[in-house]
Design a protein around this nucleic acid. Structure first.
Lengths: 340, 340
DNA sequence: ATATTCAACTTAAACGATTAAGTAAAACGG
DNA sequence: CCGTTTTACTTAATCGTTTAAGTTGAATAT
């Protein structure tokens, strides 16, 4: 039904004025009479006029569209609990400011299409990057372009970033675990190819050293993020040590289910026999029993801040200074770490 | 760095041919010499030419962009476990076909902006709708427009739809539960304002009637989807009945954690003392112990099928007949329903 | 040899908006 | 009353593409 789109020309015909006048009237320029404006606005409304984004973008070089690069190996960041919340918050703030969100991809359709070329093709006003392999040259190409970019949970020095304060969060959790009396603390961490992992791991060693807690090499093992199976295996390894830890920190909340299963399978009660901690603060962590001890990352703040900063950058590419912002998480003590 | 975008004009200058020739060469028209084409392509490559989406869209009236309407009350469908997987699959298939994905919203920025006006503004080639209030007049306006639309998990008769076969899934699960020996089966369902809920609920009654299982009124209670707290409360109500059920079916996997918690709190073992079933097949359902009995919805198929059908519709709006497709799920027997 | 077809281009208009520059009439100033 | 400013428009160019409709010279047909 409602296909025939109404253009400025239709309004200009209906009102007996030029197209330019209509355009200016609708954009509230000063050199159009108040009564004319009113009339034009009314007619535009009646005809159901909507501007044409493509035409506007072509002329003004502004699309009011932000490119989102969220690429997991397996999936897009979409199905990722933590990042989907960040993205949701980003989207909300962006939309409040009149921006839409489109996913960036390097579609295999155009064989030599890159993230950057896709972004240029769509003419994104800005780009947000999260949940990708930040060592991908395509990502660096995009970051180094003249398109305003904000990265989430990774820092390039020529590019604005918003990061969850993993150091602070990890430290706080470790202090809590320490204060609960634990001295045999194990850490299952992901591969060290992200700054998040690197930060947390360094913090793990540093904090425990400060606390004078020694960490046997065999207490530090690896498992990918969100991989319950691998975390299960890693946990088994830890629990079967001749001198097993009293507390295991998992890569994230989701993977901690692997740890929990391993413990249960060995007949260990949580937290009486073995303490378990996660990281992220996904909703489910609060819904299981015992409630998971974790650090709740402030996804809402991360997303909205990233959007605000990106929009500031878009509005003033030269004048906005590049910041590297940290967003604090909060320890949720939960019930899965025992007080010894 | 890489800002100055290269246009057809730049190529035409570099090659000493007209802009039209360049355009046709790059679009592989037949009336351009093979060697000229080759040369133009080479120069385009060298200069790093990328077409301008806005200009193309303006001229051809095709954006290669699909609008996605995924709106939860609380959030967008992004943080929704089931829908985020559907969306992810949709996105993948769309991108394989050269389409990008942009979220539709009725931003409060333009006071009288609707979903439809937003879609028209962006010139989406098509629209996919899921996870919304389908009784919202704005949704109906969009569906009734001349823009190709596919709805997911809801059926309008003038609009293509892809639905998860909830009837079949529910029926299969009920038969399984019945075959396990259960005759006192309770159902916590969501509010009946979606066809999904309506379908499952009707199926619940019908199937049990066929099986000659009577359902006391107090066995059917409500709790919203994905709400562990409300499902906890509902479960408590059920478990405290003087004649409690032996099996509780929850609105979905996520909310079943509320039920599980309620049971555990009452000192009931799962599944020995009380059986619990969910719906959806979220990954975590397989990761907890006991593994949750549930119906795994085929999110991959749902998403890709929706994308395929929408693209077919886009390519041939008149000629494509409107289908209402069902995608079967699969029972995952899990371990949370006991064999009596 | 001349008419006709064909291949390989170019010209020019168009898509729907924005905006600098131009213009005509009204308002103002002295 | 005439010159200047102001107001309220219009004209026309432009953004980067696409494409229908020429144009030209060479190949083919008769």
């Amino acid at each position: 039904m409602t296909r025939k789109t109404v253009s400025l020309k239709d309004i200009s015909n209906a009102c007996g004025v030029s197209v330019a006048t209509v355009s200016k009237a609708l954009n509230d320029h000063h050199d159009i009479g108040e009564d004319t404006k009113e009339h034009i606005r009314k007619v535009a409304e009646e005809l159901g006029y909507r501007p044409n984004a493509a035409a506007q973008a072509l002329k003004t070089n502004k699309t009011y569209n932000i490119g989102v690069l969220f690429v997991d190996e397996a999936h897009s960041g979409l199905t990722h609990d933590y990042f989907s919340h960040v993205l949701d918050s980003f989207k909300t703030t962006a939309e409040e400011n009149g921006y839409d969100i489109t996913f960036i991809n390097s579609s295999k359709r155009n064989e030599n299409s890159t993230y950057l070329s896709h972004a240029l093709y769509r003419g994104f006003d800005g780009v947000v990057i999260a949940c990708v392999d930040f060592y991908d040259p395509q990502v660096y190409e995009l970051v180094s372009s003249s398109i305003p970019v904000v990265t989430i949970d990774h820092m390039f020095d020529n590019c604005m970033s918003v990061q969850s304060d993993n150091i602070k969060g990890m430290k706080e959790m470790l202090h809590y675990i320490y204060d609960c009396g634990h001295r045999k603390i194990a850490y299952i961490h992901a591969h060290e190819n992200t700054s998040v992992t690197q930060g947390r791991l360094a913090c793990f060693y540093n904090t425990l050293q400060e606390l004078n807690v020694s960490v046997p090499d065999e207490y530090v093992v690896t498992a990918p993020y969100r991989n319950t199976d691998k975390t299960y295996e890693a946990s088994m390894k830890l629990l079967n040590l001749e001198n097993p830890p009293t507390c295991i920190i998992c890569p994230d909340d989701f993977s901690s289910f692997g740890c929990i299963n391993a413990a249960r399978e060995m007949g260990l009660r949580i937290p009486e026999d073995i303490s378990v901690a996660g990281y992220d603060g996904i909703e489910l962590a609060r819904r299981i029993s015992p409630r998971l001890t974790t650090v709740v990352q402030d996804t809402k703040k991360l997303g909205s801040l990233a959007a605000e900063k990106l929009i500031a950058l878009i509005n003033n590419p030269k004048g906005t200074l590049i910041e590297h912002l940290l967003v604090e998480g909060q320890l949720d003590e939960g019930e899965s770490v025992s007080k010894l």
